[in-house]
Amino acid sequence: MFSAAMSSISSSLNSVSTAFCNDFYKRFNQQVADKRLLRIARIVTVFTGLIGMLLALWMANSNIKSLWDEFYRYLGLFTGGLG
């Protein structure tokens, strides 16, 4: 089970860094070298992982009764305009 969770988290982190590099960074810096783009992707992966870990620790130590309700609360903050 640990391996499956680790694989899913790894895929998500790599997807975030790839989307950032290709959709945002490369758009403003078209002449970026592949080696530099790889380095930036690695930095974004580490940064995203640290943010996720801090959010998980915060949620584990706060008085959250239902994680599902908390998820919808924050989802409503960011996607309320779509409704």
Results as ranks from 00 to 15, higher is better:
residue 13 L to C: 08
residue 16 V to W: 00
residue 62 S to H: 13
residue 21 C to A: 10
residue 47 F to Y: 11
residue 25 Y to D: 01
residue 32 V to E: 09
residue 83 G to S: 11
residue 3 S to R: 10
residue 50 L to E: 15
residue 28 F to K: 09
residue 3 S to H: 05
residue 35 K to N: 13
residue 33 A to K: 09
residue 18 T to N: 04
residue 23 D to F: 01
residue 14 N to K: 11
residue 45 T to L: 04
residue 70 E to F: 12
residue 22 N to F: 03
residue 39 R to W: 07
residue 77 L to I: 15
residue 2 F to Q: 14
residue 9 I to S: 12
residue 44 V to L: 01
residue 81 G to R: 13
residue 38 L to D: 15
residue 75 L to K: 10
residue 69 D to Y: 08
residue 67 L to M: 12
residue 55 L to E: 08
residue 82 L to S: 13
residue 14 N to A: 08
residue 22 N to I: 02
residue 3 S to C: 04
residue 39 R to Y: 10
residue 20 F to T: 03
residue 34 D to E: 15
residue 44 V to I: 11
residue 61 N to D: 05
residue 38 L to Q: 15
residue 13 L to P: 01
residue 44 V to N: 00
residue 7 S to P: 01
residue 30 Q to F: 04
residue 81 G to E: 13
residue 43 I to T: 06
residue 39 R to E: 15
residue 77 L to M: 14
residue 1 M to F: 07
residue 31 Q to K: 09
residue 72 Y to A: 07
residue 47 F to H: 11
residue 43 I to E: 10
residue 1 M to T: 06
residue 7 S to Y: 06
residue 78 F to I: 11
residue 42 R to D: 13
residue 45 T to K: 11
residue 12 S to T: 07
residue 9 I to Q: 10
residue 65 K to E: 05
residue 3 S to T: 06
residue 16 V to I: 14
residue 4 A to N: 09
residue 55 L to D: 05
residue 39 R to H: 12
residue 31 Q to N: 12
residue 34 D to M: 05
residue 82 L to F: 14
residue 45 T to R: 11
residue 81 G to T: 11
residue 34 D to Q: 15
residue 5 A to P: 00
residue 75 L to T: 06
residue 22 N to P: 00
residue 21 C to H: 00
residue 56 A to H: 01
residue 12 S to Y: 08
residue 74 Y to W: 14
residue 7 S to Q: 13
residue 59 M to E: 11
residue 32 V to I: 15
residue 44 V to R: 00
residue 19 A to K: 03
residue 60 A to V: 03
residue 78 F to E: 04
residue 11 S to F: 06
